[in-house]
Design a protein around this nucleic acid. Structure first.
Lengths: 220, 220
DNA sequence: CTGCATCCGCTTCGATACTG
DNA sequence: CAGTATCGAAGCGGATGCAG
């Protein structure tokens, strides 16, 4: 059998946006990248996390992403894992911006939609954009069993997934964490809904009270 | 006949990015928004500028964008024009970021791809990101017959399309203008290739020499 | 001319079943 | 676990038609 590297149809526009959409504009592609932003995953993990994707599409997209230099296959201890290349991680910024734009669409509520706590690694820096801290602060977060480290430094917020946790750790449901980041919950309201270990001042540094949330609202 | 407002298939993910892609992730949709960013256009103008789109798709996408509150129909003097709502203009930032990410894809050259000078209004602020000026400076640009005003202030660069032109105007081909913004051409190289009227120092303020271009390269 | 609507062949998508 | 194979349904692209 011949490997057919499927080439997606091009817009044929000499424009950086159109060229970008030529390779990441197809259905599911950016969501695959979203899954890989926090770190490498195996095929089956991808399939599970991307609830709803057809298995043939997942393979096809991964092949295309690989041939375009966005994703690479690596041999881990347990088998094959898919990881973003450096070029691929550059998609974080546009994806974060698009997520920020789309944030008001979440106010209609979760309606049987699936949810994965790893998606918070994209959402939290977006919601906290503009928050800075010197010296840097780090907060461990555990939401729905998923552990991450939220770091705020002079450049702004970022989320890393790594084994060692900082001294201060906040454990709560994803809703509470998002509520805190989105400004719907104050720290006083959120803390009793979760479990805080460590220094409460870290929380106020990371989720500064009275912050003005980028208040784009839809006027449907 | 019944208006059928076609609803695009949802990913069913409770995630701002996925919700955004639910409504602007389909083929052609973001390119329609790109056309409207500089200002309202009529149906036929859209069709021409978006070389390659099928007429039924254009109608369908415009209807969907309208029902999602991103585009609105207005009655101009000459007929119907399509314009972005305020919510729609918020897409500029993610689109600019995605275009910036995709900029290296242009280095393979234009290969019979179509080109519209109005696309520069998206590309130039992207390429010049990080450049600031106090007090603000404005440069008139005419590329391939399309006129725009490039403004740089303390918040960075932006492009506006408006009738009145600033005192300093640079007229050149789109290639030269892009070369200048991308750093491939110095001011000394570019000026003889075009026509400069006014103050050359405006050029150096807008296209500062020795600027480090966000040097993401593909390692295909 | 503008601003679409309709038709049709092709491609892509999604769901399910199956395999090394 | 990590995919391949198949097939009906939906979406896309190009051509054409037509009213205002």
């Amino acid at each position: 059998m011949m490997d057919k590297i499927k080439q997606s149809r091009s817009y044929g526009h000499f424009c950086a946006l159109a060229r970008a959409l030529d390779i990441v504009g197809e259905r599911w592609t950016l969501l695959i990248v979203r899954e890989l932003l926090p770190g490498p995953l195996r095929y089956t993990e991808l399939k599970v996390s991307l609830a709803g994707i057809a298995t043939n599409l997942l393979v096809e997209r991964l092949r295309a992403l690989e041939s375009n230099g966005i994703v690479e296959r690596r041999l881990g201890e347990t088998g094959v894992v898919y990881a973003l290349t450096r070029w691929g991680t550059g998609l974080r910024e546009p994806m974060e911006a698009l997520g920020n734009w789309g944030a008001p669409l979440l106010t209609t509520g979760r309606n049987g939609d699936s949810f994965q706590p790893r998606w918070l690694t994209l959402a939290l820096p977006g919601l906290l954009r503009g928050v800075t801290a010197t010296p840097p602060v780090e907060l461990g977060l555990e939401a729905d069993g998923f552990r991450m480290v939220l770091r705020v430094d002079e450049d702004g917020p970022s989320v890393i997934v790594r084994p060692d946790q900082p001294d201060t750790i906040f454990t709560a449901s994803a809703e509470v964490v998002v509520g805190l980041a989105a400004g719907g919950l104050t720290i006083d309201q959120a803390v009793p809904l979760g479990d805080l270990q460590g220094d409460r001042r870290i929380l106020s540094a990371v989720f500064p009270p009275g912050r003005v949330i980028a208040g784009r609202t839809r006027e449907t």
